[in-house]
């Protein structure tokens, strides 16, 4: 690795841009496929909503994608192999999977209104199914992603839509 005398920090990492300690938004443009938006540091604010798929948003897209995969695959296996055992639970699993897929796409494409809709449906879903599964365990003989408020998935399904909506609100402020 060539030692760059102009680089002020003794780092062994090439071509990286560490975030400044005060940069909470951390949307510094990288060398790769960055959309041409400015970091909103003090004084660097641009008008209009920011994209939802950069910075922390990319983490959201990744986790949403993961859950889209997990929920859809799980529902597909359940419906294909043992649908008669718990039709309602498996259909809810499939619904959850579809909502996660749509939310992933909406966030990745910065489709703000659709993303809000998806996250809201998801929040209502996890609260409704979570409550129903706690009150009446018999109604859900087999677990879904949303059973017990997402207990089987470390409560991530409960936290995710909240984070999504907070992120959408934050990026939406011009």
């Amino acid at each position: 690795m060539a030692k760059s005398a102009s680089h002020p920090e003794p780092l062994d990492r090439p071509a990286q841009k560490p975030d400044g300690p005060g940069d909470t938004a951390s949307t510094n443009p990288g060398p790769l496929d960055r959309p041409a938006h400015k970091p909103d540091g003090p004084g660097g604010r641009i008008p209009g909503p920011r994209p939802t798929n950069a910075g922390p948003g990319r983490v959201l897209v990744a986790v949403y994608g993961l859950f889209a995969l997990a929920a859809t695959a799980r529902a597909a296996v359940q419906i294909a192999t043992k649908f008669h055992e718990a039709p309602l639970a498996y259909l809810l699993s499939a619904l959850a999977g579809v909502v996660y897929i749509l939310a992933t796409v909406a966030l990745a494409r910065s489709d703000r209104r659709f993303a809000v809709l998806c996250c809201s449906v998801e929040l209502v879903g996890v609260l409704a199914v979570g409550t129903a599964s706690v009150i009446d365990r018999g109604a859900f003989p087999d677990a879904t992603v949303w059973s017990g408020y997402g207990q089987g998935y470390g409560f991530v399904p409960l936290v995710l839509p909240v984070l999504g909506l907070l992120w959408l609100r934050r990026t939406g402020r011009a």
Binding site: S26, G55, R58, V59, G65
Partner: peptide, 29 residues
């Protein structure tokens, strides 16, 4: 299949997001 895919996907996303948020994606992966 999922286990096979996760880390390459996380790695690519982490490189697309060359900030601490990319590092968080790698952590989660």
């Amino acid at each position: 299949v999922a286990i096979f895919v996760i880390l390459p996907a996380a790695g690519v996303l982490a490189r697309l997001e060359p900030t601490r948020w990319g590092a968080l994606i790698a952590t989660i992966g």
